[in-house]
Design a protein around this nucleic acid. Structure first.
Lengths: 186, 186
DNA sequence: TTTTGTACTTACTAATTAGTAAGTATATTT
DNA sequence: AAATATACTTACTAATTAGTAAGTACAAAA
């Protein structure tokens, strides 16, 4: 794969995760990479195409992470902590996560981007639900709700906390994430 | 106050809460109200001005709600339930809340809109923290964390759940909100 | 050596954007 | 009756947007 293509993907993702989908333009990308606007269209004919590709890339990255944890036989706590660390890194870089960046703009996205985003959220929730379920069975986690509700609560907490931490001050993100994890301790 | 001005405020808020700040235009408002684009500028010279006015209006509305609950001597559970009902109504109308709509676009907002949004979030969090604190003292609520962390968790859950409920299916928003409330029961 | 494919640039278009300056109709005040 | 304020419209500008068609430089394959 072309290095320029990968740079566009990476920069596009960063732009979505800082400015949002509807606030970034092909000019933002081309000027940053020192190429012309038409060069971006050469790799990604439309913004819809670029957006969809970015989501697809993120799905693959997530699946690589979970596959990797499974082959390395991470237990439920280790897997959850690894997952949370992704958000801690995002917060350190002053970025939102892709789900938290695109979801509020859902109605303005094209059908293909919509369905990839939906797929991404489904994949994350399915993984997290399974993790909570098996962790609960083993007595590693304790919570009242059913696993899919709890998965949804944890995901929404992480997603929106990245959005709000860029605004409110006087809070420590790591400590906040730790409280999410502590809440699951038996 | 002019009826057109109020219509613009209401429609602008709805547009922000459905399409997002960077996806709505003065044309969206003028065509819907059957007036000209310049008429919107007559009431709100700039988009920044309109955005800020919408946030200010929402702060007033929130303060009216909490003042009203205080004068009617609502207990902590009643107050929390009333607060949650605002989100249930939003979800029914397929809208996000204003905080959840504007926060992801924070970096793209003007300074005045930024500071009003920050003020709105601070006011909500301060109220919710106080509510949780006094409810905990009275033994009505039970939770591990400190009140301000718990307030933050509840707000983020509500904010992001409105964003994600528009995408994932097969979940009942009322039941989800109930599980947030149940979680606080002693 | 010619052809072909890759990776772009040049040069544009049509649409949309926020915003403005000047005019107009109508009601209210003086 | 004249002046003034309100609530707009008309008619525009300058900037930005996504997107395109045609050309170019260069390397690799035939």
């Amino acid at each position: 794969m072309s290095v320029t293509r990968e740079r566009i993907l990476e920069l596009g993702e960063n732009l979505i995760r800082t400015k949002g989908y509807n606030a970034f333009s092909y000019q933002d990308i081309s000027s940053e990479l020192g190429i012309k606007n038409a060069a971006v269209h050469y790799y990604f004919p439309s913004k819809e195409n670029l957006g969809t590709s970015i989501v697809k890339t993120n799905i693959l990255r997530f699946e690589e992470m979970t596959d990797n944890m499974r082959t390395r036989k991470f237990d439920e706590w280790q897997q959850l902590e690894t997952f949370v660390k992704v958000y801690i890194k995002s917060n350190r870089e002053q970025k939102k996560c892709l789900v938290g960046s695109l979801s509020p703009d859902y109605v303005t996205l094209s059908d293909t981007t919509k369905s990839e985003l939906k797929r991404m959220i489904d994949i994350i929730l399915r993984w997290l639900t399974g993790l909570l379920e098996s962790g609960k069975e083993k007595g590693m986690f304790d919570f009242k709700d059913d696993s899919s509700s709890k998965a949804f609560t944890i995901l929404t907490s992480l997603v929106a906390s990245l959005q709000l931490f860029g605004i409110v001050d006087g809070m420590d993100y790591k400590i906040y994430c730790q409280s999410i994890l502590d809440d699951l301790k038996p």
